[in-house]
Amino acid sequence: MKKNLKFAIVSALALAAVACGQETTAPVTQDDIKAQMKLKHYALTPDEANLAQANAKSYFGQEWVDAANKRGMFVYCKPTDSNKNGKVTCSGKIPNPPNGATYRDTDMYCYYIEGVNGCSNKDD
């Protein structure tokens, strides 16, 4: 019984690790928000989460001139904001200069407020 439980836990963690490496495009659901509310952070509404994702996709997906115009890749935005400042942490990959052959993981703080676009490197 214990071996089966350990196998199930290891399998779930491995699957989660693989899933984290893929681009997330699914909108945030109410179930996602309810789960995060237990952490006592401000849970973004589905509309706010989708705005943050749109801003993150725009930032990470741009052509990076210093990396031979290669495009980056959006990965994930957190569904909560720890300080309710209108920005949420989003992760992505940015091509490394000079030829963009490799990528580096980067976190940015993207706005989820209606009418405010973009991302910042500071969560102030």
Rank of each mutant, 00 (worst) to 15 (best):
K3F: 08
L5V: 11
K6H: 08
A8K: 04
I9F: 05
I9W: 01
V10N: 08
S11D: 00
A12F: 07
L13A: 12
A14R: 09
A14V: 15
A14I: 12
L15A: 14
L15C: 11
A16K: 11
A16E: 09
A17N: 06
V18C: 11
V18S: 11
G21K: 11
Q22M: 14
Q22K: 15
T24H: 09
T25S: 15
T25A: 15
T25I: 14
T25W: 04
T25L: 15
A26M: 14
A26F: 14
P27L: 10
V28L: 14
T29I: 12
Q30C: 06
Q30T: 15
D31P: 00
D32K: 08
D32Y: 07
I33Y: 07
K34H: 06
A35L: 07
Q36A: 09
M37I: 06
K38V: 02
K38W: 01
K38P: 00
L39I: 03
L39N: 06
K40N: 12
A43E: 00
A43P: 00
L44C: 00
P46E: 02
P46A: 01
D47G: 00
E48S: 02
E48W: 05
E48L: 02
A49F: 01
L51N: 06
L51V: 07
Q53S: 08
N55V: 01
A56C: 05
S58G: 04
S58D: 12
G61D: 03
Q62R: 13
Q62T: 07
W64P: 03
D66T: 06
D66I: 08
N69K: 04
G72D: 03
G72Q: 02
F74L: 01
F74E: 03
V75C: 05
V75K: 13
V75Q: 13
C77F: 11
C77N: 05
C77R: 08
K78I: 06
P79I: 09
P79N: 14
T80V: 10
D81Y: 05
S82H: 07
N83G: 10
N83W: 10
K84C: 07
K84G: 04
N85A: 10
N85F: 09
G86R: 05
K87N: 09
V88D: 06
S91G: 13
S91R: 15
G92M: 13
K93P: 08
I94T: 15
I94S: 13
I94Y: 13
P95W: 05
N96E: 14
N96K: 15
P98W: 05
N99K: 04
A101T: 09
T102A: 06
T102N: 12
T102P: 03
Y103A: 09
R104H: 11
T106Y: 06
T106R: 12
D107C: 03
M108I: 11
M108V: 14
Y111K: 05
Y111F: 13
I113E: 12
I113N: 07
E114L: 07
E114T: 10
G118W: 09
G118L: 05
C119S: 10
C119E: 10
S120M: 06
K122S: 12
K122I: 12
K122G: 01
K122R: 11
K122C: 01
D123T: 03
